Simulated scan of single mutants.
Amino acid sequence: MLKRRRKTICLIAIVILLSSGAFFALPKGVTPTSEERASRPLAKSSPNRLSATSPLSQRSDKRGKPKGSISMDRYNRIRDGLRCTRLNPRLLLFPRVPKCASTSISTLLYLVSKKYQYAFIENTDGARAWTPNDVKEATDKIAKTLAQNNSRAAYVRHFYYNDFRALGVPYSYITFIRDPVERFISSYLYYHKSDLKHIKALRWREKIDSNENIAECLKHKRGGCETNLITRYFCGSETFCEKGSALALDHALMHLLRRFAVVGLVEDLTTSIQLLGHVLPRFFPREVKLPDSVMHRNANKKSEKDKMALLRDEETVKLIQKANWADVVFYDFAKKLFYRRIKMCGIG
């Protein structure tokens, strides 16, 4: 009777671990094969359920702003259990975070897709249009492409994190991020100073004054001044993800740890691409050198000069950091995670 009870308890414990997604935090010394990792299903628990023990859920007020310091112990424990493992998914998902070298990486994917024999699916719509109908349309298109090629595919678009388990195929997420202050300034300048026709039209449509400063842009919530956008992309399309709340940050961090194969840094683009080639060898080459016309296709000397001037303004930087507090916390953690993976994978 005692043996049977112990066996039942063990089975229950295993079910709880699987349903909570804890198997993504692998103990040291246990590294599954690429086929095992590629075919392993995602956790069946709701991707939007916040654990009652979350350090963020216990430290937020009614407005979703953190009270005091935020404990990162929970995320650090999961991070410390991750291993360097090659993955072999059938589907690669690349949600393009605005102003984070996404055009360059999309170009890289397009260039190598034929050599590595996978379908390249790109949608140029913005994440603002990421409605349930858009999700269904994307899912149907991906499923159709995979069925036709009976192989692999990469889906590229500005979109918020989404659970694609309905496809029934192993998939991996990748993306790139950058310092939140630099990303915000780049976005602000793009919307306010760009000479591109569609941006000029957007300024006219949304009545954006190209001469307004960052403080005014934040106050009126203009285009290009969306706050905590990195956190939003990793959190998802749920309502609570729309603002930089503690709840949104919690989900963003958990998705980063449990759903993303690689999150590269714009500041270290070459090493990031090397990590992509190491972890996802059937989608990326281990070594690659893109032409300057690709890597710096959006560079603008006037814009760079304006950006540096804003970065030297301490009050402006503090204002941006305060408005994007969740992105600052997220980026700091993601950066440490990136260099930990680089070290574990023996790159550099």
Rank of each mutant, 00 (worst) to 15 (best):
S69D: 15
P66W: 12
T53W: 10
T53P: 01
S45G: 14
S54W: 00
K65N: 15
T53D: 11
P55L: 03
G68S: 05
G64C: 09
L42S: 00
P55V: 03
N48C: 02
S60K: 10
S46Q: 04
P47G: 01
S69F: 14
N48G: 01
K67P: 02
K67N: 14
N48E: 10
K65Q: 15
R49F: 14
K62D: 12
L56S: 05
A43I: 00
K65A: 15
Q58D: 04
S57M: 09
S46D: 14
P47Q: 03
S45I: 05
K62E: 14
N48Y: 12
G64E: 10
R59E: 08
R49H: 06
R63N: 14
G64L: 12
S51I: 01
D61W: 05
K67S: 12
S57H: 02
A43M: 10
S46L: 13
S51Q: 02
I70Q: 06
S69N: 13
S60E: 13
S71G: 10
S69T: 14
S71K: 09
L56V: 01
G64W: 09
S57A: 10
L42N: 05
S60P: 00
I70N: 01
S45Q: 07
P66D: 02
S45M: 07
S46T: 03
P66E: 08
D61C: 11
R49G: 00
P47V: 02
P66F: 13
K44D: 05
A43V: 00
N48S: 11
S54E: 06
S51A: 02
K62Y: 06
K62F: 12
G68I: 02
P66S: 11
K44P: 01
D61Q: 12
G64D: 11
G64R: 12
S69I: 13
Q58K: 13
K62T: 10
L56F: 13
L56C: 07
K65Y: 08
S57G: 04
L50I: 06
R49Y: 07
K67C: 10
D61H: 06
A52H: 01
G64S: 10
K67L: 15
S54D: 04
L50M: 06
N48L: 07
K65T: 15
S46C: 13
S57P: 00
K62C: 09
Q58A: 12
R49N: 03
P55G: 10
S71N: 12
R59C: 10
S69V: 09
R49S: 08
Q58W: 02
R63E: 15
K65V: 15
L50Y: 00
P55C: 04
S69A: 14
K62L: 15
N48K: 04
L42D: 01
P47A: 04
S69Y: 12
Q58V: 02
A52I: 11
